[in-house]
Each structure stands twice: as structure tokens, then as C-alpha cells.
Design a protein around this nucleic acid. Structure first.
Lengths: 245, 245
DNA sequence: CATTGACTCTAACGTTACGTTATACTTTAT
DNA sequence: ATAAAGTATAACGTAACGTTAGAGTCAATG
């Protein structure tokens, strides 16, 4: 097969094939006397492998190593690569959250209704405090309240922004499986956030999640970020709590 | 302030400042007669803005536009950028998912090949080979044996000895509870042994245990060490896998 | 006061994975 | 035979600096 045929077949450009030839990643088995590259079936298979690793985001150099050395430990390479991808992902998450905070903040010059947003954990100013005290004990609730009340306006604003950012993100991934990595990373943000304010045990966290669904006042507020978010959060929070015990 | 002072202050390199100068992103307000760049307070503020957008993953070109034109709609730029980050993230998620699948898949293959090794070992070195030949035909047995035989004699011998020793021990304690300390210590030997030859995850280990009961070929051979050993091992392996997660 | 060490400058190649011309030749179709 | 389509090599461009390399500058020390 000639370049264009191969290129069209696998959906890449002729230039790409030329490039792979240049860097020695994939040299056609045959060449006509006039210099045309002729690819064999075997070449095609190699190309498929190359494209596979390329889709995973491997650099061509690594792909070359992997392909050209059958003894290369692919499993290890995959594990390593996975880690680097996860790092990239968390960097991206940070960027997105920072953007969200910034957007929130600039919008926030107009003070939004604090109470709505804080209902999720502001037991100091809502009628559910007794329930919270019953459920998690006086100590946890008092601690949480003390912290919230000691915040300055700016601090409160910052919390709000972060709160919104987290919920926005969770709303975006609410159709993923609750035990997926994405979901668990998202819910971890929420857990960490809560624990920056008060002291939530994993059980308390799980219980809180359950309340999101049991108590329609919570459900309503939470689902404003996206329908079904409360249920998703309950499930993801339960998985998180069980997994991290 | 001179380059290095600024660079150290904000945590970037001198080269970066030079670069920003080159591309006209940030030119120092002043310059000494000898050509040294002297940055003003105002320059520093601009730099902070630049770094802020940079952290969000904006390309320098866009940052230049944003910075140099006060009329530029920052909010819109942020929203747009947010979208592109979300896309990148979902691409990353896809890559990660694909890697996970691949890893799972290859683990499965390792499991299978170990199974083959196991069979080969059993059938090539014990008196029941004839039975195996009768049941699955000469070809299958020979192929299986060939794989085992590619090991060096010493390797094979050591392997057999250890294998036998472990199974003998397990057979002796097979009437203990699968979650007892004795049983768990015994089964740990087996897990460690397997991981010296292949690569068994805890899940794979658990799955292998299940196979000991599901697949009568395994059951039969294992129970030659003692009736009920296969079932005992399956249970002990499951407990071990769950406990050590 | 000259030397030295720390600092600064410009210039230019290297990096990644091709896209994009530009120029010239080969093969295929009409 | 001639045009159209395909192929080849060569080389610049991209993003954001890192990394030498060679040369000049500034402040402190002997």
C-alpha cells in the first residue's frame, strides 16, 4: 500500500507517515525504485500499535522504545503513564476551580444570597440544627458554627466561591458512576472542604449525603446545580466513606 | 528592580522575563544605559496578572491580548477557556479509562498464562499426565508442557519444590477456618509465590481461587493434596484478598 | 586600583509532532 | 500525449521557555 492509501485507511495524514519514517518510528518495509514507500500488512499492524499508544498520550519517543523492544515492560509503562495523566488531570482541575472562583468572585461583587448556598452546612442559622445535633452530636455542630461565625466577610466570600466551584464541578460529572475515579476525586474535594470548616468523620460524611436525599429541603437546594446531583452526591459520598475507612 | 530580583520574587526564571520581553508581553519600564532591564512596581503588577492567567493555562498570546487591551472581555475569555479546559479534561479521562481497560486486559492475560503454566506444571510432572492426554488430547498437553519446558531445569525444579511444599502445608491446615491466622499465613505463602512468577493483583488472586472450584481440572489436581483443599483455598484466598486491600 | 565573583545582555540551537508551502518527479487516467 | 493525482525531499513555523556560549557590567575585596 502507498502512503495515501494507508493514511486514509487509518485516518492520519501523509505527512504523519513521512514523519514517522523520518524519526525511524515506522519505516515502510518496501520501497519502489522511484522512492515510493510501500507498506506491508505487518507495517499496518505496527502502525495500529503506534496509534494506540499515541491515543493514550504517549510521546513518540516512548512509543518507539515500546514498539522496537519486545522486552519492554508495557504494563509498567502504562502504570507510569497513568500516573502522569492523573497529575495532569488534577492540574486541570485546579485550573478549572480557580477559573470558577474568579468568575464567581467577579460576579460576586453583587452579593448573592449567602444563606441558600450555605444551607448545606450552615447549621448555625437554620432550623435543622437540632436534627444535626441529634445526628452527629453537639460537639461537631458547635465547632462548625464557631468557625463559620468567626469568619470575616472576605473569608466568607472566599468560602462561598469555593463552595460554588465545587458544586458546579460535581454537577458536571453527576452522570458518571458514583464509584468512578472522576466522581471520587470530585467528592473528595467536598470532603476536604467540609473538613477545612469543621470536623467530619467518614460516617458523618456518609450520613450527610444520605440527608441530601432524605430531606427535600437539601435536595431542592442541591439540585439547583443540576438535576439528580443530590442523589449522585449521596451515592458518591457513601462510596467515598466506605472506601476510605 | 533587576531581572533576578524580580525572578526570585515571583518564582520564575530570568530567561522567562527575557522571553516576555522578546515577545512584547512585558517590557521593563526602564532600562539602564548599559542595557539592564529595570522593572517598576507597575511592571510587577502586570507580571502578577500575566502569571495568574498563565496558571490558568492561557497561552501567552491570549494573555498579551487580555493584558494589553483593557476593553477585553475577561469574563468571556474565562468562560471560553473554561470550556476548553473541560474538553481537555474529558480527553484525559478517556485516556485514563482506556489505560485502565488495557491494564485490566493484560492482567487477564497474565492470569491465563499462569493458568497454563499451572496446568503444564501439573500435567507434565505428575502421574496423571495420561489422564490429561486422554481428556484434552496430546497436542494441548504437549503445547502446555513446551511452555513450562522453556524454563531452565533448575528454575523448574525450584519452582516445583516450593509449589509442593506450599500445597502440602495448606493441605495440613485445610480444616481450619479460612479466616484464621494459620490459614491466612499459609495462603500468604501461596500469594507471594505466585507473585514471584507472575503478576497477581489481589483481585486476580481472588479470581484464581474461585477458579479452583469452578474449574474441575483445578479442583481435581488440588484436591490430590487433600480432599476439600480447593474449596478451603478459594475461601482463604478471598479472605486474604479482601483483608489486604 | 585591579581582580574577582555575581549578575546581565544578546544570540541561537533544542524541544514536540506534525502542518504547511515549495519544487520536482512518477504514475494513472483520459 | 497530456493532464490530473500522487509521491518525494527540504525546510520553515509552532509554544514557551531551557540551555549553553561569549561578552560586558557592577559591587566588593585584597
Amino acid at each position: 500500500m502507498k502512503v495515501k492509501e494507508v493514511a486514509d485507511l487509518v485516518g492520519i495524514s501523509v505527512r504523519t507517515l513521512h514523519h514517522y519514517d523520518e524519526i525511524g518510528l515506522l519505516t515502510s518495509e518496501e520501497t519502489t525504485e522511484s522512492g515510493y514507500r510501500i507498506y506491508s500488512e505487518s507495517d499496518l499492524e505496527t502502525l495500529q500499535q503506534i496509534l494506540f499508544f499515541k491515543e493514550l498520550g504517549f510521546p513518540l519517543k516512548k512509543i518507539k522504545e515500546i514498539i522496537s523492544s519486545p522486552s519492554f515492560d508495557r504494563a509498567e509503562a502504562l502504570e507510569l503513564h497513568r500516573k502522569s495523566l492523573l497529575e495532569k488531570r488534577s492540574k486541570l482541575d485546579n485550573m478549572i476551580r480557580t477559573i470558577d472562583k474568579t468568575i464567581q468572585h467577579s460576579k460576586g461583587e453583587i452579593e448573592m444570597s449567602n444563606k441558600e448556598k450555605f444551607e448545606g452546612f450552615d447549621f448555625s442559622s437554620n432550623p435543622y440544627e437540632q436534627e444535626a445535633r441529634d445526628r452527629w452530636g453537639d460537639k461537631a455542630v458547635d465547632e462548625s458554627n464557631a468557625k463559620i461565625n468567626s469568619l470575616s466577610r472576605n473569608e466568607k466570600k472566599a468560602w462561598e466561591d469555593e463552595f460554588n466551584s465545587i458544586y458546579k464541578e460535581l454537577a458536571e460529572i453527576r452522570h458518571e458512576a458514583p464509584d468512578s475515579e472522576v466522581a471520587q476525586e470530585g467528592i473528595k474535594e467536598w470532603y476536604d472542604f467540609l473538613n477545612r470548616m469543621g470536623n467530619y468523620s467518614l460516617d458523618a460524611f456518609k450520613g450527610l449525603g444520605q440527608m441530601y436525599v432524605d430531606d427535600e429541603r437539601f435536595t431542592k437546594n442541591i439540585d439547583q446545580f443540576g438535576k439528580g446531583l443530590a442523589v449522585f452526591m449521596r451515592d458518591a459520598m457513601a462510596v467515598y466513606a466506605d472506601k476510605n475507612k
